[in-house]
Design a protein around this nucleic acid. Sequence first.
DNA 1: CCAGTCATGTTATTCTGTTGCAAATCAGTG
DNA 2: CACTGATTTGCAACAGAATAACATGACTGG
Lengths: 173, 173
Amino acid sequence: MSEDIVTPFRSHPHNHQRCVADAMALAEERCGRRGVRLTPIRRRVLELIWGRHEPVKAYDLLDQLREDHRGAAPPTVYRALDFLLEQGLIHRIESLNAYIGCGDPSHPHLGQFLICDRCNAVAEMDDSDIRDLLARKAATQGFHVNWQTIEINGVCPSCRAVPESVSAGDDSD
Amino acid sequence: MSEDIVTPFRSHPHNHQRCVADAMALAEERCGRRGVRLTPIRRRVLELIWGRHEPVKAYDLLDQLREDHRGAAPPTVYRALDFLLEQGLIHRIESLNAYIGCGDPSHPHLGQFLICDRCNAVAEMDDSDIRDLLARKAATQGFHVNWQTIEINGVCPSCRAVPESVSAGDDSD
DNA sequence: CCAGTCATGTTATTCTGTTGCAAATCAGTG
DNA sequence: CACTGATTTGCAACAGAATAACATGACTGG
């Protein structure tokens, strides 16, 4: 099976509490096995990221973090983010300067993202056909691939079902 | 032919002056046809970008621009960049916060970039196999694609030919 | 207890990009 | 030419993203 939707659009009906809890449990387990520490701050940041099922900005995290953690500063958040990225627990979306929970930390993989321009929902794919095709094309140029950034912008299924002018992404926050 | 290297690695031997001049001529022509103005500032920024055959940062452009244009400020550069992006004359490399000349503005295309982590060289591809595969995979999720960001990091042919520890990218900054 | 490592606190700075408004420039029209 | 409206530029301030540098604290293992 080459196609593998690791994280579907959040509009996809699901038990969100359960999904966050699962992610946290996986993170605990993974860090334990690796002998690295999922400290309170790191855990909190991961929770905050999973809490929204969409890309989250570092300074938004900082604001939220400050609510129960006075004295949190940019380095507080960025250090936690670096840790979580290293452990493969989150991904960074380059085109948005934002971070999102990794749908399947069980094996290391490159993020392949579908990003809805209307409602900001993001789905993560882990498709070997894509990975392999890019590797093959790069090899044609004599290029050795270390990392692939794939971010596809467009309109997600839910938003397509809604007339443009009244789209779900018409957020007034 | 699905594969199309729009811009090869700059290590590729070529007449750089000629290649910049061609790019500028194409830009003039294109803007003329479209009825938009390639003003002196915009032209200068495009030249500066083409002058180096690698990704250029906005504030580096600003520094260079200031040399013969006192009073240039961040908006000066960003407005020019926005214009050039809109006209499809340059691309933005998301993972680097940098800009690079578009190898073939003659038809609108998505950038597909090979980025060397050692020497910062970038090659641009315009491969329909990749474009189509991504569109097909996205469609499987009911997703309508507007834009694709594809940035492949790794090691370019020239750097692969050099022992790792003495690589061209072994910058000591 | 002590030393070493890892994690956090703190302050400041750099880099990247935007907002808002005023002044200048340009294209078209009477 | 003078008037008008749309672009373009100048300018000042700011917001947002990320890092540097160094001090302090916390958890190991002897």
